[in-house]
Amino acid sequence: MPQTPARGHDAAPAPHVIRSDAPLDALGESEFADLYAEHNRAIYYLALRLLGDPQKAEDATHDVFLKAFRKMDQFRGESSWRTWLYRIAINHCRNLQQTWNERHMLSNADDAVWETAAARTDSPLRVLETKELGQRIQQALEGLPPEYRLLLLLVADEQLSYEQVGALTEQTSDAVRGKLHRARKAFTVLFGQTA
């Protein structure tokens, strides 16, 4: 079973895959333990960067996997386990944030800010000090419109295709590609300002 399907292909439901983070001593040897072992890092990281607080991210990850455990029988295999878990996590984090509402709908004025920003975005992102890297990333992400933040975080997951990212964010894969360009630029500008 491949651990990382190539982008562009919908991953088949596969809870039994290579375990990266495997606290199986806590959850025992079960299908659900495999599911947790395979996906806990992705879900925790998404929650951490969406909520911006390690304790909230821990609580959210616990709640997401508990919901998944209770609803495992409802999983029909129409999406990958990863996508299914992401959907639960995104909804959970949105409910927690409560400020999401319609603010993720961007106006042209929002884009203009990044388009006119005086920063080189075609050069690679350079990091000298990794100690505070997480804080800098969080700061840059929080400066982004929520839609861009979510797009970048999902696209960063190599297990997700653009189609899957589109399904999770309720738009076409072409729309994802178009917005991704602007999201990258906006992030690069904001990240540069955190140095």
């Binding site: 925790y44 990281y45 690679p124 350079r126 000298l128 960063a156 992030f187």
Partner: peptide
Amino acid sequence: PLEFATPEELLRHDALHTPVPPTIAH
């Protein structure tokens, strides 16, 4: 310096180096 061609690469690096609290499993 570490160099990342895209923000996604940077985020992937960060995700790999962000430990998941073991208390969640417990």
